[in-house]
Design a binder for these strands. Structure first.
Lengths: 116, 116
DNA sequence: CATATAGTTCAACCGTCGTTGAAGTATGTT
DNA sequence: AACATACTTCAACGACGGTTGAACTATATG
């Protein structure tokens, strides 16, 4: 088990945010937050073509945000679900990065107060 | 005071994430999380031209994420800081949206189990 | 073996948006 | 009044990435 305590690296946070910042992709993510779904369920619910769903799922899967699992009875169906480890880690990262306690009082390096 | 308890709307979350998902903009945001800064300080620290800093600050300001304040002594300087209300609201939104407790057990609408 | 279904991959298009250089604004200084 | 400084606005470029239609793969069914 790994628990983060330091402020995450900006580039890492940006990368993770970028993955979720797309409306279509976040809609898919949001639906998966309500439980496991297959490609066709997502497409039906959101009104998007299967290939578009597939594309966004591959992005989410590649980022470790989403898991894929084939149906044991009929292997044509693939079920997608949120990866809880990644979700927990994401929450931790966001919570640390956007922590108000990080905000420090200003120590002027610039401005009129510097040279007086 | 307003406290959110419902799961935030996907489109709203996407909008907020998009604002912060850009690396350059998030770097600026990150520096402001360490305390109030003026344009030139941000530019010096990050190695970006003033107009680029200015552009991203305007995006952040427009979104209510960042506040601007002119120096009372020398009004040429503008100090930028994180808007704490917006930050708190952002934390709340993210915390609710990415809450693992939202994940429900699958109730098949699709797949082989449906038609048997 | 032929057909159907669930999903993926590919190539191409196209809009958004971050970036840049230059001009413009506001304020202060000499 | 002229110049300097801190910052903003503008116009244009260019690239990343979301979207689309079509072809492709994999599995199942008759």
């Amino acid at each position: 088990m790994s628990s983060i305590t330091e402020v995450p690296l900006v580039q890492d946070v940006a990368r993770q945010l970028k993955i979720l910042a797309d409306p279509t992709r976040l809609q898919i993510f949001n639906l998966l937050m309500e439980g496991t779904r297959c490609n066709c369920e997502l497409g039906d619910a959101l009104g998007f073509a299967p290939n578009l769903i597939s594309h966004h799922l591959s992005v989410l899967r590649h980022a470790g945000v989403v898991d894929a699992e084939r149906d044991p009875v009929d292997a044509r169906w693939v079920y997608y679900s949120i990866n809880r480890e990644t979700l927990d880690q994401l929450r931790s990262v966001l919570s640390l990065f956007f922590d108000p306690a990080r905000i420090q009082p200003r120590q002027p390096v610039c401005g009129p107060l510097t040279s007086r």
